[in-house]
């Protein structure tokens, strides 16, 4: 196995992006959507999540460790590319470029987002509707949130497309076209859920 370390890291990177990080993203967005139903619903949903049994274990092994690996190894991959969309302006080459851009944007956004919510919670702040409402009361921060949400959903959806290729699930051009449409649909749907939820706080 030692000789195949790169192979293992790359495959792991692809897998972790979908399971568990991608799954977590969906759960997170769906829970956020309670904000659309009102302050009460959102606060009780947040409380439900906060009181999940084994909360810290779940946070560490389902969220933080996989996310950290995916982010750090992803940055290494992202900065290896020498982009050439000006010469080769093909759709997939643009997706390749955007995948790396949105990855970097998402890392920056998440660092800040985790600091402002999870770290503050650990320092004693209460995470609830009011906290979020205060955060996004600033239009610049709201814009930053929307950029972060769209970057994350794009990165997830397009990453899912690449996951299917990397694991040898979609091989033929036709299957890859079909999965392009499928993941495009996922991108649109998740973006709607994410953006609609953040707008519920204003």
């Amino acid at each position: 196995m030692a000789g195949n370390r790169e192979f293992m890291y790359r495959k792991l990177h692809s897998l972790l992006g979908v399971i568990p990080v991608g799954i977590f993203l969906i759960v997170h967005f769906v829970v956020n959507y309670y904000a659309v139903y009102g302050v009460e619903s959102y606060n009780s949903a947040v409380q439900f999540m906060e009181n999940l049994p084994f909360r810290y274990l779940l946070e560490i092994f389902v969220i933080f460790l996989p996310l950290l690996f995916h982010a750090i190894y992803g940055l290494y991959i992202a900065f290896q590319a020498k982009h050439n969309t000006s010469t080769y302006g093909y759709f997939r080459n643009w997706m390749f470029r955007l995948q790396r851009w949105t990855g970097v944007i998402t890392v920056i956004f998440l660092a800040w987002h985790v600091w402002e919510t999870r770290v503050q919670a650990a320092l004693g702040a209460t995470v609830d509707f009011n906290m979020m409402a205060n955060i996004v009361a600033n239009p610049f921060i709201l814009a930053f949130y929307i950029v972060g949400i769209v970057a994350a959903t794009f990165h997830f959806a397009n990453g899912l497309w690449a996951f299917f290729v990397t694991w040898g699930i979609t091989v033929t051009p036709r299957s890859q076209v079909i999965s392009t449409y499928l993941t495009l649909g996922i991108f649109v749907a998740l973006t709607f859920v994410g953006v609609r939820a953040i707008l519920a706080f204003i």
Partner: peptide, 20 residues
């Protein structure tokens, strides 16, 4: 096995320029 070694297959980032 060789393709699974360093510099091998997993370095592909699916830009798909090659096929074009």
């Amino acid at each position: 096995e060789t393709l699974m070694g360093d510099g091998g297959l997993t370095n592909c980032g699916n830009s798909q320029n090659c096929v074009q």
